[in-house]
Design a protein around this nucleic acid. Sequence first.
RNA 1: GUGGUCGUAGCUCAGCUGGUAGAGCACCGGGUUGUGGUCCCGGGGGCCGCGGGUUCAAGUCCCGUCGAUCACCCCA
Length: 442
Amino acid sequence: MSKPTPLSGFPEWLPAQRMIEQNVVEKIRTTFELYGFAPLETRAVEPMEQLLRKGETSKEVYTLRRLQEDAEAREDAALGLHFDLTVPFARFVLENSGKLQFPFRRYQIQKVWRGERPQEGRYREFLQADIDVVDRDSLPFHYDTEMPLVVGDALRSLPIPPVTIQINNRKVCEGFYRGLGLEDPDEVLRIIDKLDKIGPQKVSDALVQQGASAAQAEACLQLAQISASDLSFVEQVRKLGVQNELLDEGLEELARVVEAGTEHAPGLIRAELKIARGLDYYTGTVYETQLEGYERHGSICSGGRYDNLASTGSERFPGVGISIGVTRLLGLMFGRDALTASRSVPTAVLIALPNEDDRARCDRAARSLRSRGISTEVAPAAAKFGKQIRFAERRGIPFVWFLGADGEPDSVKDIRSGEQVNADATTWEAPAEDVKPLFSAP
RNA sequence: GUGGUCGUAGCUCAGCUGGUAGAGCACCGGGUUGUGGUCCCGGGGGCCGCGGGUUCAAGUCCCGUCGAUCACCCCA
């Protein structure tokens, strides 16, 4: 059997990177819980009809079937892996609405799968950290203002470059387009979304192609080019002179999100009237997040308001949510060596083994250190101390422990400084910064 | 899913118009009878991503495939 090769789009990290991922997830989780979001995990698989309920994303869904399965059952292709965490959550709410208290806020940190062509920062299997709030019948708008603040806190707790959460509101766009007399707001939105990639001239051409007049296209471009970190965007939109009720409503909402950002997290939020978001279940606020220095790789955290995603005949559960693309974030950072671990193992202390006969003594010392939370391993084999120190060095283990010769005290060496001092395994404490690996930008 | 570029030791790469593989770093051993990182000496490693084809001969040309990456699509 020849050497296995990677599977495109299914990343696997090395232990040092996995430690970083775990640490990142832990920090995100802590922030989510600080805001009172309750943990939830849904199954990886959903019925296809659920997955396709909103949005034409069928081609991205991986379907599930047993290897041995009769042809007729196969035709149903009844199950698929979820491609985000919002749709399964909506299903879960409908299914369990009787057992939940509303407004219901929960977080989910899980793998999702999409059958897209992979490239840097884009994968087929990746981890999302998602928060949502849903309520019965109607959901107060202030939750729309809270979402970016939560992920802002989470992202700012990580050793990564600054982020900017860009906000828009579909009501603004749709209202504006309708106010202009354009009939197909979704199509306009789709075109406007490409502004950064193809430039204003081509966007304008495309709009005219779709039946817009030159003046209408120009107005759409004017709107899309509005960007502000404060409320000044309202005035800028007004100046364009379009009158529409939905537009007014959207502006009011967007203003509230920006206002909350200004108050609670200066520099985090920016009204960016060109962002659209692909998923078509969003009905109001939409979020997209840029990581400074990695803008061209797309948003690392997105979401929005969905008023109609979770509804049955009689019941309706509007929601708002946002999701951090953990794998994208990490993949981009790893790709530039911009996030590293101080060691490749959790171990803080390596106990040198002078002779195989001393293993029991070493194990005793190890147990003593572990009992006080110090991650410890005993050297794999008796060898020259130089080799054992090198074993530790290769892995970034900061301390090597030496048993004292009979009657002598043990000693511990900081192999970074070379300093070695007498120590007692029942009382010695590692410096606080060395107990766990550190994760940082180099 | 469509198209482009790339794929040589663990890593970074060299290998001219086809003539059966090299460097630096890393790794292992010795100098250093057991406390490393310097220095010196020596060593192991590559079906040249994989499969097929053209040719007397292919790392070098052609096709396919897998992987990486870029653009489109879409999106975390």
